Amino acid sequence: MNEADGATVLVVDDLEANRYAMGAVLRRAGHLVVPSACAGDALIELDARLRSGALPDAALVDVGLPDMSGFELCRRIKAHPEIAAMPVVHFSAAAVTPRDRTRGLDSGAEA
C-alpha cells in the first residue's frame, strides 16, 4: 500500500515527539499524515483543505491541547456541516477515566 491508497489523517498534538511517533506509524501503514500542533492550527488547516477539496479522512486529536481542549476542537469540527462527517478519535495519556471517555463522545467524537 502506498500513500495514494491510504487515508489522509490529521494528527493534532502539541508535543512534537508524539506527532512524529504517531505520524511514523501511520505513514508506515501507507497513510498521508497532516500534523498540527494546536487546535487553532488544525482549524486553519481544515479550512484551507475544505477550500481545496482535500479534507482529511479522519482526525486523531489529543484532548490536552494548549489553546483549547480536544473536546472543544471536536465540537467545532462537528458543528461545521461540511466537515462534520469526518471521524474524530481522541487520545490522551492523562484523560483516561470513564468520565473523560464520555466527554469525548458527548463532544461528537467517534472514539
Rank of each mutant, 00 (worst) to 15 (best):
L32N: 11
A94C: 08
T8S: 15
A84I: 05
T97Q: 08
I77Q: 06
L10W: 02
V9L: 11
H80P: 01
S36P: 04
S69A: 06
D62E: 11
R76P: 00
M22E: 10
R101G: 13
G23P: 04
A17T: 15
A7P: 00
R75Q: 15
V34C: 14
A54R: 14
R51T: 14
V9T: 02
N18I: 07
L43Y: 03
A54P: 06
R99N: 12
C38A: 08
G30R: 10
D67V: 07
A84R: 10
P81V: 10
R75D: 05
D100W: 02
A24C: 01
Y20H: 08
E45G: 07
D13A: 10
P35D: 03
V96K: 10
L73Q: 04
T8M: 05
G53A: 09
A42F: 05
H31S: 05
V25S: 08
L46Q: 03
L26Y: 01
L26C: 09
R76E: 13
T8Q: 09
P56I: 08
V61S: 04
G53D: 06
L26K: 04
G30M: 11
A93N: 13
S52V: 09
A42S: 11
I83W: 07
A84L: 06
A48L: 12
V34K: 00
I77D: 00
I44N: 10
A59G: 07
H90N: 08
L32M: 11
L26Q: 05
V12P: 00
A7I: 05
P98Q: 09
C38E: 07
L50G: 01
M22N: 11
R75Y: 04
V89W: 07
T8P: 01
I77S: 01
L15N: 13
M22A: 15
P66W: 07
V33Q: 03
P81F: 10
F71L: 08
D62V: 05
R49D: 04
V34F: 03
S92A: 09
A21M: 13
E72H: 06
S92K: 02
A39W: 02
G30Q: 06
S69H: 00
V89D: 00
D100N: 13
A37I: 02
R51L: 15
R19L: 12
F91Y: 15
A79N: 12
L10K: 00
A42P: 02
A37V: 00
M22V: 15
E72M: 11
V25L: 15
V9Q: 02
L65Q: 03
G40V: 13
A7C: 11
D67W: 00
D100V: 08
F91A: 03
R27E: 15
A42L: 07
E82M: 13
V33R: 01
T8A: 15
A24M: 13
L26S: 09
P35K: 00
V11R: 00
V25N: 05
H90P: 09
K78E: 07
S36A: 15
H80M: 06
G64W: 03
P35E: 01
I44A: 14
A37F: 02
C38Y: 05
